[in-house]
Design a protein around this nucleic acid. Structure first.
Length: 481
DNA sequence: TTTTGAGTTGTTCGA
DNA sequence: GTCGAACAACTCAAA
């Protein structure tokens, strides 16, 4: 049992929970009546800890700025410290005389090892370290099948999740916080240089997003008012985008899944039951990804199905580069990759199309795709990104059947029929009529001329033939059966 | 223990 | 154009 000195401060360690509302660790600290120290640690030094991708760093900068401001209004300074978390926290503990630390749990293997080590260090000194669940609606270790194993298939996981319905009401933001008096030093955001310079590629991202708790709430409100009602039918079309676009806010914990779950079933917003259920299922997909990550810690590095360990991935840096830069010659693929580059985000339907293209058409290792997404996505999530790449690659849990190879022309025609999406992100094709937009290489010469397109010059020819690539992939997949 | 039904998101081919 | 079957066989999860 730990002693508790009411005058000794409590450290609130912010991580993937950059918010004041529905923050269990913060809530607990405030309720304890102890003086509060708020800290965020930029840890790029502990072993096996995932380092933020470039787009996430942009987001993190702005999100921390918002959190810092919100805490300042409550007279609390957000300390910014850089270094291996265990050493940083230990120094902070000594400098401030804190006898307690609280945080909301995270689920990557390296991150959990750091947390366990800090917990132990506090316990060894008779001090208190308490963790809470703030990132997920369920604990990944707690949801179990009838036989006590973890779920590997989504649908039964979903059934179990909905049956248990353990979702709690969100906690309020603290009205006031008792700040701790201390002399601990803090870095500034500028010191961390999280924003891109020379070149500053953040213009498109800046225009698209408003990081921070307030931005998250606004995004949610817009979604509930405008798009929840037709979510089930509209969410699959990338242009115009009718998804919630809450993923980066969730990734940084600016809004809690409990808050979203409650909003999803709140009768104040008009929606059919089906629309609510479809959106709820998306929220639970995120939970499922964390369930997989927790129970299979190598999710980001190793094939979930180890029979893929012998798969003949191709090394092809030039093909990878064409995919990354949106120069494959398949308009829907290129539109997606350019949306990613410009805005730090890609519509989910298009993520599947470009993922399938990289893995099946180009036969490039899904880990290359995961890495690129991780660097470019503002919502790059250690669980969702890895689980989804494994899913599309067919290496994952509940994998797509091997013969499910997306046809970019067909997908484009079905989900971007009027070409709104392709025209926005591949403007060099904008003047092409709808019927040729997803197959410019089949357009009559005159149509190309009229549209000002010279294939191979102003827009590339397809880098691979669909039929050939499909057969190659099927053959390779056949070889590892 | 054994059995049984089912499994996010697709494509192609031939009638 | 639309439709249904074929594309494999396997693993999972619950009964």
């Amino acid at each position: 049992m730990s002693r508790s000195d009411p005058t000794a401060p409590v450290i609130v360690w912010f991580r993937q929970d950059l918010r004041l509302k529905d923050n269990p660790a913060l809530h607990h600290a405030v309720e304890s009546g102890k003086p509060v120290i708020a800290v965020f640690v930029l840890d790029e030094a502990s072993p096996d800890v995932r380092i933020f991708g470039a787009a996430q760093k942009w987001w993190l900068h702005h999100s921390l700025e918002q959190l810092k401001e919100a805490l300042a209004k409550l007279n609390v300074q957000l300390l910014l410290l850089k270094g291996p978390a265990e050493a940083v926290i230990e120094t902070l503990r000594i400098d401030t005389g804190a006898d307690t630390i609280v945080w909301n749990r995270r689920y990557g293997a390296g991150e959990q090892a750091v947390d366990a080590s800090i917990k132990q260090a506090f316990a060894d000194r008779g001090l208190t370290a308490r963790s809470f669940n703030g990132l997920l609606m369920h604990e990944p270790a707690r949801v179990r099948t009838g036989s006590g194993t973890f779920y590997k298939v989504y649908t039964p996981f979903w059934r179990k999740f909905s049956a248990e319905a353990v979702v709690r009401s969100p906690l309020p933001a603290p009205a006031e916080i008792r700040p701790a008096l201390h002399k601990a030093a803090s870095d500034t955001l500028k010191d961390w240089a999280l924003l891109p310079v020379s070149p500053d590629w953040s213009g498109g991202i800046n225009a698209e997003w408003t990081p921070g708790e307030l931005g998250a709430e606004q995004r949610l409100e817009t979604f509930l008012n405008q798009n929840l009602g037709a979510y089930n039918e509209a969410r699959d079309r990338p242009g115009p985008d009718r998804t919630s676009k809450l993923s980066p806010h969730l990734r940084f914990g600016e809004i809690s899944p409990h808050t979203l779950w409650q909003a999803c079933f709140d009768g104040r917003w008009a929606a059919e039951g089906l629309a609510r259920e479809v959106w709820a299922k998306e929220l639970v997909w995120r939970e499922f990804s964390y369930h997989l990550l927790h129970n299979f810690p190598g999710l980001g590095e190793s094939n979930f199905q180890n029979k893929f360990d012998g798969f003949p991935w191709r090394q092809d840096p030039e093909a990878l580069r064409l995919w990354q830069t949106g120069q494959t010659g398949y308009p829907i693929v290129d539109a997606g990759m350019r949306q990613l580059w410009q805005t730090g985000w890609m519509h989910n339907r298009v993520r599947m199309i470009v993922g399938s293209f990289l893995v099946k058409h180009l036969m490039i290792d899904w880990r290359e795709g995961e890495r690129w997404f991780w660097d470019c996505l503002v919502d790059g999530d250690p669980a969702s990104n890895t689980a989804s790449w494994q899913w599309i690659a067919g290496t994952g849990a509940d994998a797509a059947p091997y013969f499910r190879i997306f046809n970019p022309m067909m997908q484009g025609g079905r989900f971007d029929r009027t070409g709104e999406y392709v025209r926005q992100y591949v403007p060099e094709l904008a003047a092409l009529p709808d019927k040729h937009l997803h197959t410019p290489w089949e357009a009559p010469e005159q149509a190309l001329l009229d549209a000002g397109i010279a294939l191979g010059e102003t827009y590339p020819l397809p880098m691979v033939d669909h039929k050939d690539a499909r057969e190659r992939a099927l053959g390779a997949l056949n070889s590892i059966k």
